[in-house]
Design a protein around this nucleic acid. Sequence first.
DNA 1: AATCCTTGTTAAAAATGGTTAAACACAAAC
DNA 2: GTTTGTGTTTAACCATTTTTAACAAGGATT
Lengths: 230, 230
Amino acid sequence: MKPKLLIVEDDPNLGEILSEYLGLKGFDTTLKRDGEEGGHAFQKDTYDLCILDLMMPKKDGFTLAKEIRSTDSETPIIFLTAKSMKQDIIKGFTIGADDYMTKPFSMEELLLRIQAILKRSVKKEEEAAFPNPFNIAGLTYYYQENRLVTPKREINLTTKENELLKIFFENVNKTVDRSMALKKIWKDDSYFNARSMDVYIAKIRKYLQDEPSLKILTIHGEGFKLVEVV
Amino acid sequence: MKPKLLIVEDDPNLGEILSEYLGLKGFDTTLKRDGEEGGHAFQKDTYDLCILDLMMPKKDGFTLAKEIRSTDSETPIIFLTAKSMKQDIIKGFTIGADDYMTKPFSMEELLLRIQAILKRSVKKEEEAAFPNPFNIAGLTYYYQENRLVTPKREINLTTKENELLKIFFENVNKTVDRSMALKKIWKDDSYFNARSMDVYIAKIRKYLQDEPSLKILTIHGEGFKLVEVV
DNA sequence: AATCCTTGTTAAAAATGGTTAAACACAAAC
DNA sequence: GTTTGTGTTTAACCATTTTTAACAAGGATT
């Protein structure tokens, strides 16, 4: 699977070249022209890495980055900064970023840095692999095998059921944000996907009936919470 | 084994000379006259390197390169550009290429660049070679020989079975993307090829029946996952 | 209380995948 | 040149998974 890149750059020339070049190098690129468009794109889809120009009309890259970080602390961000900016100012702005490039830069160097960052985060993901099997209350859950074993029966889960249940078990007693779950599983937070998710919530609630100490509560307007009653 | 070169050049004179010269220098060359023919040739066979003229009838070299890159991010590409093109335009077009030559160029130089690029990529390939034999669970798999040995029997695999099984063994416990596998094995993600692949999935599932710790799960809408149950 | 928005529930529709066998393609053998 | 055998694709039918739709119910807001 190609890694997905969100490129937000107001200079159409540079934007095109970046998008073109990284596309040829095996990335699935999305190009947006300003911070606002970039924000919407990020809300709608999931990306593996963002490349944000700092100076842009409507919404600058730094503001956009803060917005992104408010919902997502993972996705790596690389800033593009103008040569004219002073080093120490750049430092200030790019705190929290994973890297930054000063214009003009070589495409090859940008590519190398992207690859380096993605390598790191792929490694992280693998380390943070979900335990298999995972025990909770009276249940045994095998994420790798799409399987949930309850005291009464063994359930083979479908792909969507499995992904959703995993998110709940990763967040026991914590609120799972609707939109976060939608983006993770359905890749897109839209009306119909949200309704689809509601259907799956019902299915999972049925599966958990066997174990009275586990319940999925609705946090109206926010999401759901799997609570473990002791 | 001679390295295979795909040369796509509309000028019959230059094309012939190139093909002739590189053939004498130990390459197995295929010459095509325009981008369309070149595309078909690339789909049909596997090449170690492509030499594409930028300006060609029917389909230009840049468009062809993008098509190639959509299924294959490895095979090196060298562009041939006309002298009349401005440097910066060439820059724009040859982004993503491994190298480019401006006409007229010396054969010797082209040869040197080809050799330099192939040296790099041969090294990569060797590193990524699939182990032969490969042991997993109770099975022994000989990719080179199209052979899978299970506790109960010895299976001679057909070409397609072998390629598909290899992809699974390269991705144990990871989801194998349908479309990726299709493009790798069938060179083209189409409805019928997808159905064909489903037939092969069934065949491989049968072969793996002997080993209950290996299962191919369906990841609906995405692909398949070979899980090793411990 | 009236209204709006969100969520619960159920069933039907649509999409995707599983299975089997027949059709086809191609090469080796006769 | 035809036959035979093997590998692959196509087709048909079935099963499962996912999405959509419609309506009911629950909270929030005025």
